[in-house]
Design a protein around this nucleic acid. Structure first.
Length: 489
RNA sequence: GGCCCCAUCGUCUAACGGUUAGGACGCCGGGUUUUCAUCCCGGCAAUCGGGGUUCGAUCCCCCGUGGGGUCACCA
């Protein structure tokens, strides 16, 4: 039997990076074994649905370059892949369990339940549990209630005194006492299944072989095991993966510390492959020193038993940034230019600072800025003086020479020198050589001369090499900016 | 609180029971350099504590401590 994995997102908000990490593991396991990855939308909580969330989460997954074999948009033999379209199935299976005596109707009102919990708490019971009140109902009482259209739910009849074994691919064999389990509701009064029922029914019907999910699901796994047993179904493999936390804290990812939605990282200027590479290593490693992985290499090297047992893994945003810089540097200037232009078109269509009409010029700019970029979004700020005249701060103009007079002398010297260069000869080696000859001849210190020139041309003190900038800007602009700076003095 | 899980540098982690406990990010220092960045070289830095088992424990067992998850008609 082939390996079939799935992700089962709820459309209750933006797709979370944690979900993307799990998706990566699901994807790798399926692909490595020539299996299938299924996407199933778990929208059984009608109250928390967010309009448009399904489309957005599918879009994001596509933007990260991950494809799935069955699910929304692609269909498949087990369609529909949206739980709200499978309601009849869950009802049918819930009633099957009732007939088998593994589940039962419950007509208790919310008031009674609240009162029950209060009583149990006041008695000092460590956990509150349903008292199986409706389990004792006679057939007559049940059918009478049903015919009166009384609101009901269906509950799982959890057996007493059982030790439930869960065999986890990451954690190994685990045991849970059934006495700690509540008679979980399977079918809600609105006719929708709870997660517990729907996940088991669907995973079975969709022939899922491996359930990979966060540690947070561990405590509900024995309930699922009970359900599989009640149905007489084969239990799929389970693998619970470490949760993600914020650096310097034991708390889960927080918006205050940065993005948490998968889509937001893209908007911030992260490359999909960088985010993916970073995510792969959150709880997994190949056991070698290789740590640059594309999706294909990841699939090749992935192994579920190299997933970390640790319960919490730090989402180290600094390392993510490093990965992003690494991938930015790895691109050719041409490809990176395309990335940067596409990025701004998508997220900042009004970004007029980029000279769209001359992509070749932008490519030259990218070449100079590439190794200084950690995010695509930084291009705007770092490249400003290539596209428009910078504001020149007089203080900066004299900071490196020490005086107005000295700066004037330096800039006037460059002005005369550059004015004498033929436009056709305005190229990096010529500018570089003549400039060095000039400072030697005039007795300027390299730093004072070049830094003053840098400020005059860019308005900044940290830029790529100043002669590269001068060559790219062109003679006219360089002359202009030197003159303007002289006027500032 | 009950139940369950987890525990190596600050972080992600490696180490068939025997290693000077390795790598990466970050940090610090040096080199290249007109600034920044890149790149190269170097450095700091860890086995939670206590008991066992063993010739020998990061590794196996127990207890403690710490952290986390979960206890809904949410997933």
């Amino acid at each position: 039997m082939s390996v079939r994995t799935r992700i089962a997102p709820s459309p209750t908000g933006e797709y979370h990076v944690g979900g993307l990490r799990t998706l990566l593991f699901d994807y790798a396991l399926a692909k490595k074994n020539n299996g299938q990855l299924i996407i199933r939308i778990e929208d059984t909580d009608q109250g928390r649905l967010v309009p448009g969330a399904v489309e957005r989460l599918l879009d994001v997954i596509e933007e990260y370059g991950i494809s799935w074999d069955e699910g929304p948009r692609v269909g498949g033999p087990h369609a529909p892949y949206v739980q709200s379209e499978r309601l009849d199935l869950y009802k049918k299976y819930a009633k099957e369990l009732v007939e088998k005596g593994q589940a039962y109707y419950c007509f208790c009102t919310e008031e009674r339940l609240n009162k029950l919990r209060e009583e149990q708490r006041s008695k000092g019971m460590p956990t509150t549990k349903y008292d199986k009140h409706c389990f004792g109902l006679s057939k007559e009482e049940i059918s009478q209630n049903l015919s009166q259209n009384k609101s009901y739910v269906i509950r799982l009849n959890v057996p007493k005194d059982r030790i439930i074994e869960v065999d986890d691919l990451v954690l190994g064999k685990l045991t849970f006492p059934s006495n700690d389990l509540d008679d979980q509701i399977l079918l809600k009064s609105d006719g929708f299944p709870t997660y517990q029922l729907a996940v088991v029914v669907d995973d079975h019907l969709m022939e899922i072989t491996h359930v990979i999910r966060g540690f947070e699901w561990l405590p509900s796994t024995p309930k699922h095991v009970l359900l599989y047993e009640a149905f007489g179904w084969k239990i799929p493999n389970h693998a619970h993966v470490p949760l993600l936390k914020e650096a310097g804290s034991t708390k889960k990812l927080s918006k205050r510390m940065g993005s948490v939605a998968a889509a937001d990282f893209l908007k911030e200027g992260y490359l999909p492959e960088a985010v993916l590479n970073f995510l792969m290593f959150l709880g997994w490693n190949p056991g070698t020193e290789k740590e640059i992985y594309n999706l294909k290499e990841f699939v090749d090297d992935f192994s579920i038993d190299r997933i970390q047992k640790t319960d919490l893994v730090t989402f180290d945003r600094q390392k993510l940034l490093w990965y992003n810089g690494y991938y930015i540097r790895a691109y050719s200037a041409e490809d990176l230019t395309t990335k940067i232009i596409d990025y701004h078109k998508k997220y900042y269509p009004d970004a007029l600072f980029i000279n769209w009409t001359d992509p070749l010029y932008t490519q030259q700019v990218v070449r100079l800025l590439q190794e200084r970029l950690k995010l695509l979004s930084e291009f705007q700020l770092l490249s400003s003086y290539f596209y428009s005249k910078p504001e020149i701060d007089k203080k900066l103009l004299i900071e490196f020479s020490g005086s107005v007079e000295r700066s004037s002398e330096i800039l006037n010297s460059f002005l005369t020198c550059y004015d004498g260069i033929e436009k056709s000869g305005w190229e990096l080696p010529a500018i570089d050589n003549l400039s060095h000859e000039l400072i030697k001849e005039k007795g300027f210190k390299p730093k004072e001369a070049f830094m003053t020139l840098r400020v005059a041309l860019t308005g900044q003190t940290t830029t790529p090499p100043v002669f590269d900038i001068a060559a790219l800007l062109g003679k006219d602009i360089v002359i202009d900016r030197i003159k303007d700076s002289l006027n500032e003095l």
